[in-house]
Design a protein around this nucleic acid. Structure first.
Length: 425
RNA sequence: GGAGAGAUGGCAGAGUGGUUGAAUGCGGCGGUCUUGAAAACCGUUAAGGAUGUAAGUCCUUCCGGGGUUCGAAUCCCUGUCUCUCCGCCA
């Protein structure tokens, strides 16, 4: 959520920021509601003060044997007025809150201005030694490989649940598990994260805290009977670990890494993208989440990207990094890098990770603060998260890049001690 | 699922209609004492909002929401959560 005070003090800056993010310009409406709200607050506060004074007087008068009836009658009127004004105040406050909750974060100044994904900027490309974009044999795509080697069974996944719910079998299942374990272990051992294994059904407050709701509500699964949402990413439960808390400055940065399955309805996005692993309703992901002091968050974002890159370099998977332009940023993000891995069969890059700095946008919604040692005051922290990484798209790249001309798959070196086998045939 | 009890400050725990934002203890912070530390003693210790250059002043908050009342931590209704007992269960 954007800071009302900041909007009040920098209306044009925020207006431009929203424009750059292809968002609705809400500035004039917000300013006028804010004005109205403050006027009402002044009025009610004055009346409440009056009431409080009378409340202190009444028992004293009673003790002194004075007649309190006139005061009581007057205070009755005051109370009625307060009730009335409070109601108006609540209405205005709710309207304001509703607008702000539906308004996205604005981008950091280092983010390129742009309308669509076309204007994202590639900042890096990393290719393993001896890698070539051209193959001297006919490459199979991950669906063909999965079927031939009996490691992925999309048809039966569909039978069990519906399309977009992949079934891993045999060495495919083992490979997936190996990949997850490798990623978790690596972040724990080399990057200093604390492991968490969070709940995967969360309540509405948690979804609102990280900003999936209300804007993306249609893309979320929902269990009506219990009012719970299957998480679209572990970002939700992990960021909400500290919802409503005031953290100690010396504990920062707090860095969590956790595995979870992720559930997305992907409403209305069926089509070409939806075959195999490219777009699924359930996938596995290792997520990194950081709670940091505001002044460090952009350094932490760069480190977060490197943490994700390390995994790909260990796996020797070709990838590139995109700096998303303002128009392609997600609702809550102020700056975001996407990491895309190469798919030889698709002959294109596939998004496997997204590393974002939300600044205090989520912290404000979820009320996550830390006590500033210098000012002694609670201040909103900055939250970041990044996939480290999502296995579905990554698995596409692993299978396709590690295939041999005979259609076998070599297990990446770093995964072999996890799988217990070196080749899938 | 059935029956009962409860939710108060960082924590523990008083408080059943009127100067209670809240006793007391612990913890934290500052000080006295000490070569230093401990102990002891003294003081201090919530968050949000409005207003103001500021000092300050005022308002709100005792799980959430609604109600009764001149006035609610305290009474009533409701939601959520926690605990105990019974049943069921991986």
């Amino acid at each position: 959520m954007l800071d009302l005070k900041y909007i009040r003090e920098n209306p044009e800056l925020v207006r431009q920021g929203l424009l750059n993010k292809n968002a609705k310009d809400i500035i004039d409406e917000v300013l006028s509601l804010d004005e109205e709200r403050r006027t009402l607050i002044m009025k009610t506060d004055e009346l409440k003060s009056k009431r409080n004074q009378a409340s202190a007087q009444i028992p004293i008068m009673k003790k002194g044997g004075e007649d309190t009836a006139p005061v009581l009658a007057e205070m009755k009127l005051v109370s009625d007025q307060i009730t009335l004004l409070d109601e108006q105040l609540r209405e205005v406050g709710n309207k304001l809150e509703d607008i702000l909750r539906h308004t996205p974060n604005i981008a950091h100044s280092s983010v390129p201005v742009g309308k669509t994904a076309e204007e994202n900027v590639e900042t890096k490309q990393w290719l393993p030694s001896e890698f070539s974009f051209k193959n001297d044999f006919k490459v199979l795509d991950h669906i063909e490989l999965g079927k031939k080697l009996r490691i992925l069974d999309f048809e039966r996944g569909t039978k069990i649940s519906g399309s977009g719910f992949p079934l891993y079998t045999g060495k495919g299942a083992t490979l997936e598990r190996a990949l997850l374990n490798f990623m978790l272990d690596y972040h724990l051992k080399h990057h200093g994260y604390t492991e968490v294994l969070p709940p995967i059904l969360v309540n509405r407050e948690s979804m609102e805290g990280t900003g999936q709701i209300p804007k993306m509500e249609e893309d979320m699964y929902f269990i009506e009977k219990d009012g719970l949402y299957p998480i679209p990413t572990a970002e939700v439960p992990i960021t909400n670990i500290h919802r409503g808390e005031i953290l100690t400055e010396k504990d920062l940065p707090i860095k969590y890494v956790g595995y979870s399955p992720c559930f997305r309805r992907e409403a209305g996005s069926y089509g070409k993208e939806s075959k195999g692993f490219l777009r699924v309703h359930q996938f596995n992901k290792v997520e990194m989440v950081k709670f940091v002091k505001p002044e460090t968050s952009y350094d932490e974002l760069e480190k977060l990207v490197v943490d994700a890159e390390d995994i790909l370099q260990e796996l020797k998977i070709p990838y590139r990094i995109l700096l998303l332009c303002t128009g392609d940023l997600s609702f809550s993000a102020a700056k975001c890098y996407d990491i895309e891995t190469w798919s030889p069969a698709e002959n294109r890059w596939l998004e496997a990770s997204s590393c974002s700095n939300f600044e205090n946008f989520q912290a404000r919604r979820a009320n996550i603060r830390y006590r500033n040692e210098t000012t002694k005051k609670p201040e909103f922290i900055h939250t970041l998260n990044g996939s480290g990484l999502a296995t579905s798209r990554l698995m596409v790249s692993i299978l396709e890049n590690y295939q041999t001309p005979e259609g076998k798959i070599i297990v990446p070196k770093v995964l072999q001690k996890y799988t217990g086998f070196e080749i899938i045939e």
